[in-house]
Design a protein around this nucleic acid. Sequence first.
RNA 1: CGGGGCGUAGCGCAGUUUGGUAGCGCGCACGGUUCGGGUCCGUGAGGUCGGCAGUUCGAAUCUGCCCGCCCCGACCA
Length: 577
Amino acid sequence: MRLTHALVPTLKEAPADATSVSHTLLLRAGYIRRVGAGIYSYLPLGVRVLRNVERIVREEMDKAGALEVLLPALLPADYFRETGRWHLFGDNLLRLKDRKGSDYHLGPTHEEIITDMARREVHSYRDLPKNLYQVQTKFRDEPRPRGGLLRCREFTMKDAYSFDVDEERAKLSYEKMRVAYTRIFDRMGLSYRMVSADSGAMGGSGSAEFQVLVQSGEDFIAACGHCDYAANLEVAVTAEPPPAATQNKDGAPEKVHTPKAGTIEKVSAFLGASPDVFLKSLIYLAGEEVVMAVVCGNDEINEVKLAKALGVGEVVLASPDDVWRATGAKVGFAGPVGFKGKLLVDRAAKALPLGISGANETDYHFKNVQPGRDFEGEIVDIRSVRAGDPCPNCADGKLEVYRGIEAGHIFLLGTHYSEKMGATFLDDSGETKPVVMGCYGIGVSRLVATAVEQFNDANGILWPASLAPYQVAIVQLGSEPEVITAVAEVEAALEARGISVLVDDREERPGVKFKDADLVGIPLRVTIGKKSLERGGVELKPRTETDPKKAELVAVEKAPQTIADRVAALAKSLEPK
RNA sequence: CGGGGCGUAGCGCAGUUUGGUAGCGCGCACGGUUCGGGUCCGUGAGGUCGGCAGUUCGAAUCUGCCCGCCCCGACCA
C-alpha cells in the first residue's frame, strides 16, 4: 500500500479530550476517530489491527474446538425477560421500541440468546459437549465511557458459551478455554496474569480474569512473586495474621477529647499515635440493616468482601445522617465500643493489642481499646490486601499489587441460565437434565487499545508483529529514479512473499516521514534514499531500536530475503510456548 | 446519578471579566526555498462563535432553557 493512496491522517497535536496513552496515540496515528461518547470509527489502519486481533482469537477458538456462530445484536425483550435481566441490567441496557411499540434492546451479552439456541437444537447427551462462539458488536450504555477504545458503549467482543452434561465435563470445557486464552494473549505478546475474580451476580462456581499488566489499568490485582497465586484486589486474600501479641486483661478504654479531629490523619497527629493502631470504623448499609465494619487504621475496607461476609449483593457507605442515627456522633467519631448494631471486625484489627477508636460521641475518641475485652464482633476478612502481605498460597511469597486492564473473563455458569430457560437434554439413562454452561469473553476492541497501552514510547506505538497493520514500513526519501526503482523492487518482492508493506511515498521531508513512521508503529522500518543507496543499499531498523545510527545496511538485491527473515523471526518470537 | 470543567476554522487555543460585528499556531491550497528526525518565506481558502429564546441600537461576550463532550466519584454480566 502506498501512503499517497491510503488514508492515514496523522495529527501533530492530540485532540483535547484524549487522556489515556492508547486513546491519544490511536487518534494521532490515524487509527480511530470519535463519533460520540464511547463510540468510535475505525480508519483503515484501525480496521487492520482489529482484524488481526479477531484472526488470532478465531484461530485459537477454532483450534480449541469451538464453533463460530453469529447472533443478532438487535434483540426482542422476551429473552432477557425470561431470566429477569431485562430489569437487572437497568440503565446499562440500550433499549428501543419498534414501530408497533414493542420492546427491544441491543445485546450487551448473549447468554439468553445462545441458551435459546441450545434449548432448540440440543436434545440429547449425544449432542454434547458444544462450545459456540461469536465475534460481534456489543452495546452497553456505560454510565461513563472513557479511555477511547478501553471502555466504549459500542465495542467488539468475542463471546463463547460451552454446554456440557455435568459439572465435571463443564470444567474440562472451561480448562480448554483457559488454555486457548493463554495462547491468544501470548500470541499478542502481552504481559498478563490470570487472576481469580469476583463472579459477581452471575452466580457461577468459578471465574478468572485475564488482566493485562499496565500502569494505566483501572483494576488492581494482587499477585505472589513466588507462586502463581493472583487475584483481583476485590477478592484477594492474605495469610492468617498472627494472634494478638498481648492480652491485657485489666484496664479500660480511656476517653480523650479530640476536637474537630474526624479523620485518622488528624487524630493520629493530635494524639501523636501511629495510624496503624487505629480501629477504623465505618458505617455501611446492607439493604435495610446498618452495620459497622472495623479494620486497622492503615487498611482499606474491601466492600466486595464485606458484602460477601454479610451475604448481600452490595453494601453502601452510610450517609452522614445515617451515621448520626447509628452512633449519635458526627462522621469521624464512630467506634465499636458500645455500638449496638451489627459489628464486623477484620481479623487483622482483632489482632491489635490496644487501639484507638471513635467514642460514638462527637469530638471524642477512646484510647486503650482492646478487641475482645471492650467489644465483641464477628471476626471476618474484610480488608483489601496490601503490597508486602504474605501470600495465602505459599510459605515464602509476598504479594505485589499491580494495575491491570481486564481483557478476558471466563466463567463457570452452572445451570443458572439453562434452568431458567429450560435448556435441557436427555442423559444416557433417559433422564431430563439442564445443560451445564460456561461463558468466556474477550474484549476484542479493548485489546487493540490495551496493546497500545503496553507497547508505546515517547514517539508512538510499537505494535507486536502479530497485531501490526502492516508488517513492514518503507520510508522513501527523495524521488530520484534510482530511489523509486529500489523502493518498487523491494516492495514488490516483499508482497510476492506475502508480506504486507506500507510505503511512505509522500513528498514530505525526511523528518516528517520518520516521525509518522514512529507514530504509526509498524515493527520493521526500511529506509530507502539516495544516501542509503550510495552507502550500498537499504537501511533496516526495528521500531524498538530508537537509535537511527544502529540501522542495518542491506544490499537492495538481498533486502527482500533479509527482511522476510526478520519478519519471520518477529512472528516466531510471539509463538505460544 | 453526585461533583468539577469545557464547547470559537479540520486540530490545538486566545478573545467573554468591561457588549461595538472574530484572531493566533498547526494543518489545507498555490508560489518560491529547503531536503536523513515535524525547513523557511510569501499569498490564499476556510467560522450558523454548540442550539433556541430573551435583554440591547448592537451579543462569541449579558440572562434563561436545552444539547453535546471531558475529568473525579458512584457504576461496570
